[in-house]
Simulated assay, not measured.
Amino acid sequence: MSELVFEQVSVRYGTRRGGLTAVDGVSLTVPPGQVVGLVGESGSGKSTLARSAVGLAPVSAGRVLLDGIDVRQLAGRRPLQMVFQDPYSSLDPRMRIGASISEAMPRGGGADARRAEVARLLELVNLDPDRAGMLPAQLSGGQRQRVALARALAGQPKVVIADEITSALDVSVQGAVLNLVRDVRRSLGLSMLFISHNLAVVRYLSDIIAVMYLGRIVEAGPAEQVLSDPQHPYTRDLLSAAPAWNTPLFEDGDAAGVSDAEPSDPHHPPAGCRYHPRCALGPLARPDRDVCLTTDPAQDAERRPHRSACHFAGEPRPALPKGARA
């Protein structure tokens, strides 16, 4: 089991004047043998953070450490693999399934040994080894995502990063893929960073949950604690907006979910707390709370429960009048 650590990681694109800081000083730890679920709206920087770990996004500042070693210093194949969101584009359409999996294996071993390993990996992800001779177009979306997982495991990783791996699949096959991921991770003792915008999925798989907004982690802690007692208003809004079959995942009186306000422009994030233009605990509801406009709450987040980047973490959200909208 291995530990993956993001240490004050920033990822910036473009020039100093016209660039975009997609990830801004993120510190996050994936403990050995555990699953960290990373959630947030589209554009929050989740996938960019993941790509920085596997060398697909430039790390402008900070470090990504695998068992204490900067991943940029690892020679040869990194013991860190990523499963991408879209199974239709993550596989070469002209390469047969067995060849795609074999390509990811470490060098060495004869052809028979490699074929046997391909068959073992296909069985591990609940696919018939006879499918090794098929092309991706001959498989369903769920089967392709299983192949993508088998290919990631072929690299003999210590840590796996799964980026929205069920979002492109039909609901009918999402559960099967999630059960497979959970079983494979447990049987192999892998550490995992699991990225999703679906809170039900994150709750099902994760030991720890981290919430990301505009390039920063705004709350992180044990999954059940974060979901049952969220400290940051953005986490509360996400939970209020989450669909549920029977009862809401999080109940908060008459409060509405995520406000109608659009997220701030990531090219020009607001001063102070980045969430204050949408927050029901800040100046929108309490004009006297101008600290949210001027002081970044991330500076002393470590002293608050769940490392919440909020000056008023844990305060109940005020109920709105009947019929009112946030």
Rank of each mutant, 00 (worst) to 15 (best):
R77F: 00
L169Q: 07
S196R: 02
I101T: 10
E219Y: 04
G40S: 04
G18F: 04
F312M: 08
G323H: 07
P277L: 05
Y275V: 01
L135G: 03
R289T: 05
G110M: 04
V30I: 14
H197E: 10
L38E: 04
L4Q: 08
L169W: 06
A309N: 07
L38H: 04
P58I: 00
M1H: 06
G40Q: 02
T166Q: 04
V159S: 07
S172P: 15
F6H: 10
L74I: 15
R72K: 12
G37I: 01
R17F: 00
L135K: 12
A162W: 01
R182D: 14
R146W: 05
D67S: 00
V201N: 02
Y213V: 01
F6T: 11
G14D: 11
R185H: 02
R17Q: 10
D296T: 10
V9Q: 01
L205D: 03
L91C: 08
R289P: 04
L127E: 05
G110D: 09
P266Q: 05
G142N: 11
A119Y: 02
L205I: 05
V26R: 07
G37R: 02
G68F: 00
P305Y: 01
V54A: 02
P243K: 04
A319P: 12
S52Y: 05
V177D: 02
G62Q: 07
P287F: 01
A176W: 01
R114T: 11
A313F: 08
F312L: 15
K158I: 03
L135V: 03
V218H: 12
F250E: 05
S42C: 12
Y204W: 07
S140W: 06
D70R: 09
V59P: 14
W245D: 06
A210Y: 08
V30P: 04
P32L: 02
A241T: 11
P287L: 09
T29K: 09
R17E: 13
G76P: 08
A162Q: 05
T15F: 00
L56R: 07
S2M: 08
A111T: 13
Q143T: 10
G109K: 13
V291K: 13
S206D: 00
H276C: 11
T166E: 00
D67P: 12
R216F: 01
Y13C: 10
S44Y: 00
V147M: 06
S259N: 11
D288Y: 00
A313Y: 08
E302T: 13
S60L: 09
R286D: 13
V211D: 06
L178H: 02
G215V: 11
R325H: 08
L66H: 13
T294H: 15
G45H: 02
L56V: 08
R96E: 11
W245M: 14
V125N: 03
S308E: 12
L178Q: 12
A22M: 11
G323R: 08
D163I: 04
V202N: 03
R17I: 03
A301Q: 07
S27Q: 07
L190K: 03
R94F: 04
V211Q: 08
S52F: 03
G43L: 12
V23Y: 05
P269L: 00
R96K: 15
Y234I: 05
P321N: 00
V39H: 03
